[in-house]
Design a protein around this nucleic acid. Structure first.
Lengths: 216, 216, 216, 216
DNA sequence: AATGAATGAGAATTCATTCAT
DNA sequence: GATGAATGAATTCTCATTCAT
């Protein structure tokens, strides 16, 4: 988990925006690289040690830059963390979205979403430490992440209902339930153990959902 | 959330055991009261501020005892936290168990369990901060709590299946899914907002489960 | 070193005096035993851990009495330590004196003194930790111990000179030199290693002294 | 004693090595100065108050730097102390060595060594507090200091014996004896009182040694 | 932009000593 | 006399942040 590259080596548009929102966009190519190095290092540091145990000096050491350079790009420890949470949140969404869109119907979409999610998590185990710790470090990000995710699911279900693939009486409650299932299944079968394949897990759940909220 | 009594005013047997496991059981009545005060104060302090922002001096101030008295009963900040996690975990279980046992069938049991859980959480909002933060402070407790809870659910489902109330093909995956649903529904409808009643939430889910894993 | 009884099980006259000088002589038999237990425990505790690392609670735990009981017999941590230093100092003197007195001449006396000293130290290794630490804890005791010891040696040498066994030009300088030799030889061949017997060490030194300050 | 300069104002090679061994060598000139100031201040603080009574804040106050700066250069209170013991130990050796080397024969060398030692000690009275307290704070340094010193003396005596200036039957025992004499004579005539000149003390001892272990 | 030294507020922890029972 | 809980001053160590070079 620790060693893996968490993000591409250059800043994408949305990442630049994200960083800019914390106030300090790099102007030169050299600066861009330093920022990238710091961001990657922060994901590793916080993923390994958590926010409170992780340190700025740990980040800069990993990034191979001087301590002071950190403050060229971020205003505070909280700021990198916030940027990271948003970044991770976006990554999950971006990674899972295509499979969901490609699914033939809504139940299949949920199966694909869960399966992809678990698979993604296996390659990014730090994601739980980072997003969950936001509950304590930056509750706003935490709420935003889950509220947004639940909304997305609710919207999907609604659309599925409109298409007649999902029972009409589903609601936000179901969206939150599905999100909760996914999160814990990701923790259990993605982060903690991989004794069951993502597909097998997703199949079980999809079957339950098909009967539970599907229209047959 | 902060002001509520989290535990009874005397140490029950299991609480005594719990504390003793951290090493320093009181030998006099006076000591018993002080320990109780510290434990209650710790639940409030950590519930309000979280583990890292909470302080020993905050705990002893709330408990109305001297700073040093804390160390008469606990070896460290981590130690109270561990004791607290275990305590909260036990409380949830103890609170929810009777309703589950009293239910006529397995689906009704899950409904009752969720409903009670949300209701309990509304009166103990600090429970999320404490148990979830264990992921970072004392991962072992965290794992233990969720692994134990999932096992308990799995055992219930298995028993239900044996009685023919639950489909035979359910597995641990379903137990983790149900736990995840419950946790997030508790967060959304217990801690964050109470725009929907626990019963209504539980009804929706129970219906889905009845179709999804029930035998009709 | 730790387990050995450092003093007899009852208080001798001088010990009683010594303790009384710290202010709190026991009145009952029960009290006498408790005091004895505390004194023994203190020698072990300080011998093992040193003054600063040693603790009152460590002493009372070893003595098998309650923490508070310590203050029934001593006014402070310093007070036991002072009592102990004086006690150890007296013990060395009392142990070594007979052999010195019994020696046929002054050089033989020095040999006997050194030999006995090393032997004694082997059975009471804590003596160095306690007496030497007095330099930092209670400098007065430390000075007193060494000044007294040096004086005693000087007096012996003078008497020897008067009897014609020792050169007439010896002085305090020689007394301090002899004491220094003895102390370091005790440390090296008594406490640290016992690869050479006390007698062999004493023989070497006696020979040197015979030529160096003896009259042949 | 407290105010005297204990070490030169810049870091010598060996000092740099010594400090580096504790892990944090300065990289800039400014850093070098700060480290020097801390080291000097520590010698004064510990010399005056001893290790346990001395405090980090006392050191940084004397050094005129912020409390935290201490930790830029040392990992702990123990670490400075260790560095200091090693430093003092080296200083004594370096100070005394030239006089020993310049002496015409081995007995003269011992006289010169003792004389210089006492003189040095008069100007660095803190040396005893620091080296002796190592027995309790960092026994390894303590052992090392004395074992090394004794070895050095033994080697000198052996060389003297090879040249026929010293009797052939001298051994480690004599080396330890001589070291012990020197240490206590330094304490008595260097630190405690200066009623006898270093030369006079050294003359007395040299005469004793000439007869005792010399070949005439 | 980069560097790394300096800063100091903040918190956990220890333990001698007191005292009510 | 004995007990052990309570007290709180004192200290070490951490680390985010600032700033001079």
């Amino acid at each position: 988990m620790a060693g893996e590259r968490v993000q591409p080596a250059t800043l994408s548009r949305s990442e630049a925006a994200l960083v800019a929102s914390e106030g300090k966009a790099p102007r030169t190519e050299r600066g861009r690289k330093t920022l990238r190095a710091i961001l990657d290092a922060a994901a590793i540091e916080f993923g390994e040690k958590g926010f409170h145990e992780g340190s700025i000096s740990g980040i800069t050491r990993r990034a191979g830059v001087a301590l002071g350079s950190f403050y060229t790009y971020f205003d505070s420890k909280d700021a990198v963390f916030r940027a990271l949470v948003r970044d991770m949140s976006d990554q999950v969404r971006d990674h899972v979205a295509p499979a969901i869109r490609a699914a033939p119907d809504q139940i299949a979409a949920e199966r694909a979403g869960l399966s992809e999610f678990i698979a993604f998590v296996r390659g990014h185990k730090e994601i739980y430490r980072i997003i969950d710790e936001a509950e304590f470090v930056d509750p706003e990000s935490f709420r935003l992440h889950y509220a947004t995710t639940a909304d997305r699911i609710a919207a999907r279900l609604k659309a599925g209902a409109a298409r007649g693939e999902i029972r009409a009486d589903i609601s936000d409650v179901h969206a939150w339930a599905i999100m909760g299932m996914n999160v814990f299944l990701g923790l259990r079968y993605g982060v903690w153990q991989d004794d069951v394949s993502p597909e097998a897990v997703a199949d079980s759940i999809a079957e339950m959902l098909a009967r539970g909220i599907g229209t047959k």
